[in-house]
Structures are given as C-alpha cells and as structure tokens.
Computed example of a mutant assay.
Amino acid sequence: MSDLAGRVAVVTGGAAGIGRAVVARFVAEGARVVVGDLDPERGAEAVAGLGAAAVFQTTDVSDPEQVEALVQRATTDFGGLHIMVNNAGISGRMHKSILHDDLADFHRVLGVNLLGVMAGTRHAARHMAEHGGGSIINLSSIGGIQAGGGVQTYRASKAAVIHYTHSAAIELAQFDIRVNCLAPGNIPTSLLSSSGSGMSDAAREKFTRLAREAMQNDRPLRRDGTPEDVAEAAVYLASERARYVTGTVLPIDGGTRAGKPLAKQFDKAAAR
C-alpha cells in the first residue's frame, strides 16, 4: 500500500526545486496535493502531468490570508487536510560582510521564510486539531543549524524555523499533530544563485560554482544530493511510519553537519 493513500497535502513553494519534487513524490504515494507558489506559470506546469491529484493556487506565503486561502482550497477541493509542507523559501542577497549588509531584504526574507512557516503551521493546525491530527513539515536549511559567513538574514530565518518547529511540536502534540523539520544542505536548486542577485551573469555563475565546490569539499558523502532525496524524507515524516516522531530536525546534507571528510582531516594533520 502507498504510504500516503487517501491523504490530502498542501505544499508551498511547490512549483520548482525541492517543493516540486515533494509534490510529485506525494502524488506517487497516493496523496492529493494543493500546490502553492508565487509563480503561476511554473505552478501550472508542475501540476499539469499529475491529473486530478494536484491543483495549483498562486500564493504569497508572506501574506497569512493567502496561506489561509490555500489551506481552505485543500478542504474545499479534496475534503480535508492531513499534511502541510511549509517549503517556500528565498535567499538573501550576498554581501562582502555584515559590515556591508544594508538589511534591505530583511522583511521580505523573514516574511517568506519565517512568517510563511508560522502562518502555514497555524492555519493547517486549526483544521487538523478538529479532525484527528496530522503532520506538519517545515523546511529549514543546514544554514539554520551550522553557522557560517554570508547571507546572514537567510541563516537567521532558517534557524528561527527550527526553534519555531520545536515550540509548535510541543504545543500541538495534544492534538496528535506532529511537527518536524527538514534541513537540506547542498541540494542543487536555484536558491543559491539567487543570492548573487546584483552580480553580473558571469560573476554569479562563478560565485555559484565556487560555493558548490566549497560545500562539496566539506561533505563526507561524495554523491550529490537531489530534491528527490529531500522528498523521500518528507514522505517518511508525512506517513504513519513516523507516527511517534515529532519535534525533530533531520539534516539531509550528505553528512556535512556531522563533520569534515576524513581525507581533509588527514591532510590537515599531515601539514602540521
């Protein structure tokens, strides 16, 4: 039997990247999915091949009223809501250092990455609390766990998602609502290159390539991660297999959070 047969899900940011992979995997597992995204063209494309199992609604998650309408779409079109995936997210603009950061993108980044998660959790939980519970999955990032230079507003927003997930898990457990968090790392999507907005095309391409190389060098597993790897984890957390799992943060990062690759450690020791 499919893990999500008969379930209804909402996935924000579902038109591309990780969100799109989650939508496709959920439908393959038997779920019906409402996809929210700010891009109507890519959103329509994302659901085009999924038949009656998926519908799209243009949504800006930084507006709680639009998030509420997205949740209502699930109950209206599919008769309920069992799974909420708060995936929509944007990056901040890369600056030379904190000293050069004008904080101009603060409200937009926090509005999408944090307020969107909070609104999605609240509206989904209001329905779930009265209908037997459910699973809420929030997307953070390895950047929300592991400190580092650059895009500090983005890192702060993703760290806040983790703390909010823990708090919501405690509060909503009484309603049999599980709240968990996925923290992807070095997954090839357009998010990284978007932090180079304002650069020339050539500079942005070089920045993206060098950043990915640096992340790969810090990752114990040699294979690259994919949006589908994250989608597999989302299926697990959404399913009854994870019925005793709440308040967790699952890094999907090839071991980056665990530590440096062994070869790198040997290289440093040899250089001493």
Rank of each mutant, 00 (worst) to 15 (best):
F106A: 15
G51D: 03
F78S: 00
H107G: 10
A46V: 02
N86P: 15
H107R: 15
A54P: 05
S97C: 10
G79P: 14
G80T: 08
F106Q: 15
R93H: 04
G80S: 08
V109T: 14
V47E: 11
F78N: 01
N86E: 10
D105L: 08
L103F: 15
D105W: 10
L70K: 05
K96P: 12
R93V: 11
A46C: 13
Q57I: 07
A54W: 00
V47D: 13
G51R: 07
T59Y: 00
D101Y: 03
M84C: 12
Q66V: 10
Q72Y: 02
A53Y: 00
D60R: 08
G49F: 00
S97D: 13
T58Q: 12
N87R: 07
R42A: 14
D77T: 15
H107F: 06
Q57A: 12
G49R: 09
L50R: 11
N86R: 11
A104F: 00
T59V: 12
T76I: 03
R73A: 12
V47I: 15
D63R: 07
K96F: 05
V67G: 02
A74F: 03
P64R: 08
R73M: 06
Q66R: 10
L99H: 14
G92E: 06
T58E: 10
S62H: 04
D101I: 04
L50G: 05
I83R: 13
V55N: 02
R42C: 07
N86I: 10
E68V: 06
A88S: 11
E45L: 06
G43A: 05
R42T: 08
Q72V: 06
F106T: 15
T76W: 03
A46T: 04
G43R: 01
G92F: 03
G79L: 09
E65H: 06
E65D: 14
G89Q: 02
R42L: 09
F56V: 14
L103E: 12
R93A: 03
F78E: 00
L50Q: 08
H82E: 12
V47F: 06
D63F: 00
G51I: 01
E45W: 01
F106L: 15
F78M: 04
T58Y: 00
G43C: 02
Q57S: 10
D101A: 02
V47R: 13
A54G: 08
I90K: 02
S97N: 11
M94P: 01
E65P: 06
A46S: 13
S91L: 03
T76L: 03
T58P: 06
K96G: 15
G80N: 08
N87V: 03
D105I: 11
T59P: 09
S62K: 05
L50E: 05
E45A: 14
G79F: 07
S97I: 04
L50S: 05
V67R: 01
L81P: 06
E65I: 05
L81F: 01
A48T: 07
K96C: 05
I98M: 13
L99C: 08
G43D: 02
M94L: 10
V109N: 06
T59R: 06
A88D: 09
T75A: 06
T76P: 09
T75N: 09
S62L: 04
A53S: 07
K96A: 15
E68G: 14
